[in-house]
């Protein structure tokens, strides 16, 4: 296989794509949004359980899609649990950059401690999409949807 394909379809991604974590609908979830990728017709729903202090107590998703979008959703649910809204927003921003730009930012504009470097490292398996601009939307769909759910929107499209 070619190098950039091997970077994209790493074992971790194939594993999360095949066996997504937190693929469920928690009864206590209080924010929901559906994200739609018009290019392939795939959509997924993100369920957030936000406590009154603005902390994400639980995050799960439902839906089907390509290996990249499912793996990204699965990984997202793993890193977001216990984060505040601001931390989630900061992590999304850094993740987006990691998917689109060769020069990752150093986080100097983040508030101190907003982004845990270990979380960013876990998400770095998806940085292979950089070489596949048509697939960036697949990698970011779950995150856009999560952001919409936090903001109380119910629908979001990657276009």
């Amino acid at each position: 296989m070619l190098d950039d394909l091997r970077d994209l379809y790493q074992e971790v991604i194939l594993d999360h794509g095949r066996n997504p974590r937190n693929l469920r609908r928690p009864a206590e979830a209080n924010r929901h949004a559906r994200g739609h990728n018009p290019m392939c017709g795939d959509s997924l729903v993100v369920h957030l359980t936000l406590d009154p202090g603005g902390i994400i107590r639980d995050v799960a998703f439902e839906g089907k899609g390509c290996a990249i979008s499912v793996a990204s959703a699965s990984l997202m649910t793993e890193v977001l649990k216990g984060k505040t809204r601001d931390q989630a927003t900061a992590l999304f921003r850094r993740f987006h950059e990691l998917c689109t730009s060769d020069e990752e930012d150093d986080g100097s504009s983040d508030e101190a401690g907003a982004v845990d470097p270990d979380d960013l490292d876990r998400l770095r398996v998806l940085s292979g999409v950089r070489a596949f601009p048509m697939r960036v939307k697949c990698a970011t769909l779950a995150w856009h949807t999560m952001a919409a759910a936090m903001n109380g929107e119910e629908e979001v499209s990657t276009e």
């Binding site: 379809y9 095949r18 392939c40 899609g65 390509c66 697939r135």
Partner: peptide, 27 residues
Amino acid sequence: DNAHPHDIGTIIDRAGVAVRTGHHCAE
């Protein structure tokens, strides 16, 4: 069975093979 059309399209493109993937404007 185990590969989404989008993943198929991306992988075979690297072999120079162009196919369409998606709903083909016929949802």
